[in-house]
Design a protein around this nucleic acid. Structure first.
Length: 317
DNA sequence: GGGCACAGAAACCAGTTTCC
DNA sequence: GGAAACTGGTTTCTGTGCCC
């Protein structure tokens, strides 16, 4: 009975998903759905609520698409996604037996939930969450040290902060492998283009958000003695990204526009643009602004899936 | 510009300590 | 006692510099 109710909800509220052609749902979105679903189970949400939750409904509707993300030989997954794979595996869904688009029965769903719950009670699962937070703090610390070292080495730095992303209408087609490919090209160009001739430091991190999908936060520090126009440099870097990610409607957000800087200025938080070593507040703000790349508090922005061995955070040495 | 070696950084994992 | 935080060793990746 409960399940029939569920199916009714599906018909009413998710026609848009049914109407989508196969594989047109954003990879990032699918992963976040899985995580939300697993999180409900981990939080010991009552079964009825889990079954009626939108993430469960969507997973049921597009399970085949979720299952296509299972490629453990090529990707590493977060603990939540691994818990989901474990549950699917126990149900025999990962051996190619479920690709006929059939609905799971009530009993199978309950079984899946139980297996995910069991997995989430293992030490390794809990451990991974705390290790990830700790790793983020380590990265943050190393980034802070790096920035402070830079400030000691250069009396003036021109600091650029840009976010790279993709057009909303193209996000459904962006795979994590595309993001890494674009980032690799961007980093290669950084070493080639005359634009970066006086670059003294840079850093990046790849993130995944519910709204923005995959995106990259990046910073670039140029010699303050060679460049003054941070707004212009940010725009040129943004244009380069747009050219690299043109297939997916590459877009960027510059924090160095006069409007953005004015907002920071008013809040006394301006840490980008020209930063003089003698300006203590500016230097601290710079640490804060660039430290955002490895902010441990951004727990919902981490990557749920990444190509094996690849990093999510990096900086020039 | 491409290939290669090397050093350092990021990630992973297991063990230990600290805190509640 | 269990969870969270921390440490240290190891592996793997990446940036850099050098050579051709």
């Amino acid at each position: 009975m409960l399940w029939q109710c569920c199916q009714l909800v599906i018909r009413v509220s998710d026609m848009s998903i049914l109407a989508r052609p196969l594989c047109s749902i954003s990879e990032s979105f699918l992963l976040i759905q899985i995580e939300t679903f697993v999180d409900l189970i981990v939080q010991r949400t009552p079964l009825r609520e889990v079954l009626n939750h939108l993430s469960m409904i969507k997973i049921k509707l597009t399970l085949n698409e979720h299952l296509t993300l299972f490629q453990p030989e090529y990707f590493d997954y977060s603990e939540h996604i691994n818990a989901f794979w474990y549950g699917c595996d126990q149900l025999g869904l990962l051996d190619g037996g479920y690709y006929d688009g059939q609905c799971l029965s009530d009993a199978e769903i309950e079984c899946l939930i139980n297996h995910i719950w069991q997995y989430s009670q293992q030490k390794e699962f809990k451990r991974k969450v705390s290790d990830r937070c700790y790793q983020a703090r380590q990265n943050r610390q190393s980034l802070e040290n790096y920035i402070r070292q830079l400030q000691q080495q250069h009396s003036r730095l021109l600091v650029i902060r840009v976010d790279f992303g993709y057009a909303k209408e193209k996000q459904n087609f962006v795979k994590i492998t595309d993001v890494y490919r674009h980032l690799d090209t961007m980093n290669r160009e950084r070493d080639r283009q005359p634009l970066f001739e006086h670059l003294v430091a840079s850093g990046w991190c790849i993130e995944q958000g519910n709204e923005k999908g995959y995106h990259i936060h990046a910073f670039y520090c140029f010699k303050g003695s060679k460049h003054q126009q941070d707004w212009y440099l940010a725009q040129e870097i943004g244009r380069l990204w747009k050219a690299i990610a043109v297939d997916f409607g590459g877009g960027y957000h510059s924090c160095n526009t006069p409007e953005s800087k004015e907002i920071y200025e008013r809040a006394n938080r301006l840490g980008i643009g020209m930063i003089h070593r003698g300006n203590g507040v500016g230097c601290e703000n710079m640490v804060h602004a660039l430290g955002y790349l490895a902010k441990p508090e951004k727990d919902d922005q981490y990557l749920r899936m990444k190509p094996k061995g690849r990093r999510t955070f990096g900086k020039t040495q």
